[in-house]
Simulated scan of single mutants.
Amino acid sequence: MFRNILIPTDGSPLATLAVDTGIAFAKEVGAKITVFTVTEPFHLVSLDAEQLSSTRTQYEALSELHAAETLAAARTRAEAAGVPCVTDQASTHEVYREIIRKAEDIGADLIIMASHGRGGVGALIIGSVTTKVLTHSTIPVLIYRK
């Protein structure tokens, strides 16, 4: 049923667990995966601690390094499990739209992603990428929550 799975990740511990779960699921069903990360461009005004303490150049370099390390680690784990894996990254202010666009571009039939479960003011200020993907995607979404 599922043969082409997109697994977006931000490299957080919970998202890493979702990637590992996605790899195990893909192995069970014989699917290939694309692990995808989206970095947000530098904001002059931000609530992100990394952006508040960095210059644009520093932030962009750290974001690229973090994305590359996150994708390399996921690729290594997928290869060890025998799951065909492609990795990709993008940068945009609208992370959820880029995740949906990527899923459509690769013909994904499932998106597996983590939900950090932010509630209250955090959800109002930051919003939930996962909620937005669920709301706007026509592709099935499997949410990993610990």
Rank of each mutant, 00 (worst) to 15 (best):
M1H: 11
R3N: 13
R3V: 06
R3T: 15
R3E: 10
N4K: 11
I5K: 02
L6Q: 01
I7F: 05
P8L: 14
T9N: 02
L14A: 13
A15T: 14
A18M: 04
V19I: 13
T21S: 02
G22K: 06
I23W: 01
A24P: 14
F25S: 15
A26H: 14
K27D: 14
E28S: 12
A31H: 11
A31E: 09
A31D: 10
K32I: 01
T34D: 10
V35W: 12
V38Q: 10
V38H: 02
H43D: 14
L44V: 06
L44N: 10
V45G: 10
S46E: 03
S46H: 03
L47I: 13
L47Y: 14
A49D: 04
A49R: 10
A49T: 15
E50G: 13
S53I: 00
T55Y: 00
T55G: 01
R56I: 00
T57K: 12
Q58N: 00
Y59C: 07
Y59A: 04
A61C: 00
S63H: 00
H66I: 04
A67P: 03
A67M: 01
A68F: 04
E69I: 11
T70L: 08
L71G: 08
A72T: 03
A73Y: 12
A74R: 06
A74S: 09
A74H: 13
T76S: 15
E79L: 11
A80R: 08
A81G: 04
G82V: 05
V83T: 13
P84F: 05
P84G: 03
C85W: 01
T87A: 03
Q89S: 15
Q89E: 11
A90D: 08
T92F: 00
T92Q: 01
V95T: 08
E98V: 09
I99S: 05
I99Q: 04
K102I: 13
G107A: 04
G107V: 09
A108M: 08
A108I: 15
D109P: 04
D109W: 13
D109Y: 12
D109E: 07
I111E: 02
A114P: 05
A114T: 03
S115N: 07
G119E: 06
G119L: 04
G120L: 12
V121L: 11
L124W: 10
I125P: 07
I126E: 01
I126R: 00
G127V: 00
K132P: 01
V133P: 01
V133I: 08
L134S: 02
L134F: 04
P140D: 00
V141Q: 04
Y144I: 03
Y144T: 01
Y144P: 05
K146A: 14
K146P: 12
